[in-house]
């Protein structure tokens, strides 16, 4: 238990540092803004109480917001993603009641894990970029941003996860 909490704290700090100091400075062609800090929420153990997942998502989103001057947008998208997380895990996997796996390639299986990441990253990025634009006037740009950023975020997240040992 204590080890799990410690692991998650380390993961949170590392992902935040990479997001804020490295990825937020990468501006490829204006359409690619990868956000990998959500991997923290995506890697919480399956049976984490829902209220705790949601509050952690809110705090994570708010931290990114504070550093990026985008009050509330990241918090909104991350909480939405955290809320849909358990539903999606239930939908694509069939774990027993007493199992409490930490989502990864090894516990979910490669295909299922990729599906899990793709769906949730897409939900997060869609909410995020629409809220950022806050009007349908920039519809075309927003769609492009969602698509390209999601692809890069998904590849980065899968890359990070594939480096991990069992």
């Amino acid at each position: 238990m204590a080890i799990t909490v410690f692991q998650n704290i380390i993961r949170f700090v590392l992902l935040m540092m990479v997001q804020i100091f490295v990825l937020n400075n990468i501006q490829l062609s204006g359409y690619i803004n990868p956000y990998i800090y959500i991997l923290f929420i995506l890697s919480l153990p399956y049976r984490t109480p829902q209220w705790l997942t949601l509050i952690l998502a809110f705090v994570t989103g708010l931290m990114v917001d504070i550093f990026m001057n985008t009050m509330g947008t990241h918090a909104f998208a991350t909480v939405l993603m955290a809320f849909t997380r358990n539903g999606i895990i239930n939908l694509i996997t069939d774990f027993e009641k007493d199992e409490n796996p930490t989502p990864s390639f090894y516990t979910f299986g490669i295909g299922v894990y990729i599906r899990y990441i793709v769906l949730l990253v897409f939900i997060h990025h869609t909410a995020l970029f629409f809220l950022e634009a806050f009007s349908l006037a920039h519809f075309g740009i927003v769609i492009k941003k969602i698509f390209f950023s999601s692809v890069v975020s998904i590849l980065l997240i899968l890359g990070i996860q594939s480096l991990k040992k069992k």
Partner: peptide
């Protein structure tokens, strides 16, 4: 309760926005 926490946090984020 999960749903209500969700609603509360989303409303809070939108208020911030």
């Amino acid at each position: 309760s999960g749903f209500f926490v969700f609603l509360l946090l989303e409303i809070l984020s939108l208020m911030l926005v």
